[in-house]
């Protein structure tokens, strides 16, 4: 992926650059909102990473202007302000995701990759999701693997749907709690892991090939 980082703190921007290039992405960075806006408009990036607190033009305003100018590149806000209402503000300004500092590198990579995927999906409505021999019918709300119908609880269905939409990508526990449960907090215990292991026992237990993988120190990945 080709990613534009707009962050005024040099050290922090270098850190992000290292993390993302380490994950195989190409990164450009700028330090100011105006410059970022110009660059974002002139080139086709797969994702923008925008610090909310920029000198002069704030990240919030930058993305707002970018959106009102017709820019569609997905944007991830970085901020030290982790309050939910700030998150809402960020999403209302046209951001697609919100990540509070400090964050784990894996979290950043997972979220940026999830953004890029959304971008490339191009809004075509999908009714069937397929990962390997696992198939999900979104309309009939049915999941089938090798002709075996898999019976899922509503939340398990949602969880699997999210994993399938992001097949091949690492998703973190926080992302799952946010996107599947719609809660923004840190559970202290392994609540998400237990849900995953339940889901795993339903979709993988009877089969040779394990689709749902644990990514150590990061989260999970569904791979066909």
């Amino acid at each position: 992926m080709h990613i534009l980082v707009i962050e005024d703190d040099r050290e922090h921007s270098e850190f992000i650059e290292n993390v993302l290039t380490g994950a195989g992405h190409s990164v450009e960075s700028v330090g100011q909102g105006d410059e970022g806006l110009l660059r974002a408009r002139s080139k086709d990036f797969d994702a923008l990473i925008v610090d909310r607190m920029l000198p002069e033009k704030s990240g919030l305003r930058m993305v707002q202007e970018f959106r009102s100018g017709g820019g569609v590149t997905p944007a991830l806000f970085l901020s030290a302000l982790s309050e939910v209402d700030h998150r809402v503000e960020g999403l209302e300004a046209g951001g697609d995701d919100y990540l509070a500092k400090p964050f784990a590198p894996a979290e950043l990579i997972a979220r940026v990759e999830a953004l890029g995927r959304r971008h490339s999906q191009n809004e075509t409505p999908v009714t069937i999701l397929k990962v390997g021999d696992l198939e999900m019918d979104l309309l009939a709300r049915k999941v089938v693997r090798e002709d075996t119908i898999i019976d899922l609880q509503p939340r398990e269905f949602k969880l699997l749907e999210f994993l399938m939409r992001h097949a091949g990508q690492t998703v973190t526990r926080t992302m799952l709690l946010e996107k599947v449960w719609n809660y923004h907090f840190d559970p202290q215990t392994n609540v998400i892991d237990v849900h995953i292991s339940r889901l795993r026992s339903k979709i993988d237990k009877e089969f040779d090939r394990q689709l749902l993988q644990t990514v150590r120190g990061a989260g999970y990945c569904l791979e066909g």
Binding site: V84, Y183, H184, F185, D186, P187, Q188, T189, V191
Partner: peptide, 19 residues
């Protein structure tokens, strides 16, 4: 109230009990 904070509070209490 604040939904996220209330959820965090309930989650913390449950976490404790499980631990």
């Amino acid at each position: 109230g604040d939904r996220a904070l209330l959820a965090q509070a309930v989650s913390n209490i449950l976490d404790n009990s499980i631990k």
